[in-house]
């Protein structure tokens, strides 16, 4: 079976984020380029967070999935520009996050500096859909998540934070 760019993307759609195993690396928006030459595949990935420890595992998962699919040589390259943004996560993937119990990200702040006094709109609870929630901490169980608590259903929940 010869590989094509499309078939490589198809394989990558089965490689899940190890920390959030309901969305694939393609849905996460970190696959920036795919080049195929015969059975040699070059995949360019952009990291989510600079220090995300899952990136090494993601690279290893991409490599082994493509080798299993018939590639003989897999090159996983890294690019930093343009910097990853959660705006690249599509509507379908956002619904998957919500169903998994993680509030999907809002729109990322564009450029410029931050307003320190900015009050964030409450994030909708992924369990009961209430907007009566409060931010507990902008840092959660992984680099990409914030912790909120729902005042209606009393459930603490993660938010995939906008970046």
């Amino acid at each position: 079976m010869s590989l094509t760019s499309e078939s490589v993307y198809e394989v990558l759609r089965s490689v899940m984020d190890p920390e959030v195993p309901v969305i694939s690396v393609v849905e996460l928006g970190i696959i920036r380029d795919v080049q195929v030459e015969g059975s040699t595949v070059r995949v360019t990935v952009t990291p989510t967070y600079s220090g995300c420890p899952a990136m090494h595992e993601i690279e290893a998962d991409i490599r082994s999935a493509l080798l299993k699919a018939g590639a003989t040589d897999v090159d996983v390259m890294t690019t930093f520009a343009p910097a990853w943004t959660t705006d690249w996560i599509g509507p379908e993937a956002r619904e998957k996050l919500r169903a998994y119990g993680i509030a999907p990200p809002g729109r990322a702040e564009q450029g410029g500096l931050i307003t320190l006094t900015r009050r964030r709109d409450p994030v909708q609870c992924p369990f009961c859909a209430s907007r009566d929630t409060r931010l507990q901490s902008e840092f959660g169980s992984t680099a990409c998540k914030a912790i909120h608590v729902c005042n209606s259903c009393r459930q603490p929940f993660d938010e995939f934070k906008a970046i």
Binding site: S50, F80, A81, A83, T85, I114, F139, K161, I163
Partner: peptide, 22 residues
């Protein structure tokens, strides 16, 4: 180019840090 790319990426994270520390 490379320095600018790393700075742009780091900036996004540091904004979260600044909000937290302030």
């Amino acid at each position: 180019e490379q320095l600018a790319a790393i700075a742009a990426k780091s900036l996004k994270e540091c904004k979260y840090h600044l909000r937290h520390s302030s």
